[in-house]
Design a protein around this nucleic acid. Structure first.
Lengths: 205, 205
DNA sequence: TAGATTGTTAATCGATTAACAATC
DNA sequence: TAGATTGTTAATCGATTAACAATC
């Protein structure tokens, strides 16, 4: 039985990927787990443990080859393969995410954006034609969209999530401050901006 | 020595707060840890443990009074007391956050927004006059701003963060995909949208 | 009282870290 | 070879969960 990868490890993998790109730009060809850990203020043993899930990526006594490790992580994370996403809810947050360069850099392609406001439907927003909510299921199937970014008001989120599940979406990145109740088949990640700032402010005092 | 509160507990506290508000709207006056846990798919013992950090909030045999618990959590989280924030970087994400209602609902007040693009400075964005970056330190002190929301490009973030630390900011909510190096005095929370979607997509396969 | 449910302690689980043999 | 650093095991730490005495 293969050991399952902790979510935190996957998150750090992306941080390693970014650091390695930075190091490449600097012309640095080789790095030890200790130096890499230093860049992100974690322990060297954490770096080695994370990487060890994916085989023997370094050389004892000599550290890691920056380019090789960067490419290996890119392959592990599937950065080169395109995943189709849609954005549901073209309010200011939805529009901002439609324009967000960070998604494209990791291989995510926005294939459709949706809203139900009649003054938005048919208009171009950030270069994407805004489609009506009624067309959602059809377009998701047509465009082979696997991931939905949900930026609708809280009271609309659950209902739309159920529709998304029914038309076979695989994952939802949910910005609405509500717990979505769906079957285990659909992966849900919540980004809760209010929670982030409140938690931060709790610890200042 | 008082036991320190885990960050995860604080985050769940906000989820409890939202659920309790929802229950109040429904006219529900009393709830057990088991029912409250059921709403968010966690264990009842988790709810009781979280609440136990803050005293004896329930009644043995009878559960919790919804209104009383809601208000107690509001006080613990400091929801009624206003905290002043500023937003730095009026790109699409910064503008979306300036318009975001979720911050205001938890007592955060946007006191200033900044950008260094000359075509933005002086203009109203989402109702806030965009101020020049040169005025940042002065305005933060004048307006008693404790928290900065940082939505600038990655390559500008560290430099601005240092300026923020120097002028006494207490916390930074950082949306730039870089590790900020600052003294321990400044609390930093990172919201990494690219990481969120990449992690989600890793686990679908 | 009998039944329900809290508050808290102890057990469990999972993730981080330290330590070190393997080996470049 | 001697020094450096990996890959991995074991120890530690912290958070979640189960269990149950206290008590409403």
């Amino acid at each position: 039985m293969k050991k399952s990868i902790p979510k935190k490890t996957v998150q750090r993998l992306l941080l390693y990927y970014r650091s390695l790109n930075f190091l490449l730009q600097q012309g640095i060809k080789n790095i030890s787990s200790k130096s890499l850990a230093g860049l992100m203020e974690i322990r060297d043993s954490q770096v080695r443990k994370d990487l060890s899930y994916f085989g023997h990526l370094g050389k004892r006594g000599a550290g890691y080859d920056v380019l090789e490790l960067r490419d290996k992580i890119a392959r592990i994370l599937g950065i080169e393969q395109v995943k189709n996403v849609c954005i549901i809810g073209m309010g200011s947050l939805g529009s901002a995410l439609a324009a967000y360069k960070g998604f494209a850099a990791l291989g995510f392609k926005v294939r459709a954006v949706f809203d139900n406001a009649s003054h938005k439907v048919g208009r171009k927003i950030r270069g994407y034609e805004c489609r009506p909510m009624e067309a959602m299921e059809k377009i998701i199937r047509q465009e082979d969209i696997e991931i939905a970014v949900l930026t609708v008001p809280a009271d609309a989120a659950q209902e739309i999530a159920v529709r998304l599940e029914k038309c076979g979406i695989k994952a939802i990145l949910n910005f609405a401050p509500v717990k979505l109740s769906l079957s285990r088949r659909v992966k849900v990640s919540n980004v809760d901006l209010a929670m982030e700032i409140k938690t931060l402010s709790f610890f200042i005092k």
